[in-house]
């Protein structure tokens, strides 16, 4: 599984990343979490509001910080 956090390094982006990591710990799952800060790559996903969460190339959420619980559900639904 490949998890990408889109955003140019603002506080909310770090918050999202932290929550995603918590969700991974909850699930006991190991996954690659990548910070995507390059604007061209962010735009390639068609995302206009950061932070955004992308799992395996699919945009899950934009413009909001998911709670660890929401992130956990998102990871489960993608892996299912």
């Amino acid at each position: 599984m490949r998890i990408e956090i889109l955003g140019s390094g603002c506080a909310r982006c770090h918050g999202l990343e932290a929550n995603v990591r918590k969700a991974l710990v909850m699930l006991g799952k190991d996954a690659e979490v990548i910070d995507v800060t390059d604007i061209q790559q962010i735009m390639a996903y068609g995302v206009m509001a950061t932070p955004a969460l992308v799992i395996d190339g699919k945009v899950i959420a934009t413009g909001r910080v998911l709670s660890p619980e929401e992130a956990r559900k998102a990871i489960v639904s993608v892996s299912a």
Binding site: I39, Q40, M43, A44, Y45, G46, V47, M48, K58, V59, T62
Partner: peptide
């Protein structure tokens, strides 16, 4: 820049 449309 090419914008993807997959968002949402």
């Amino acid at each position: 820049i090419k914008i993807g449309s997959a968002a949402g």
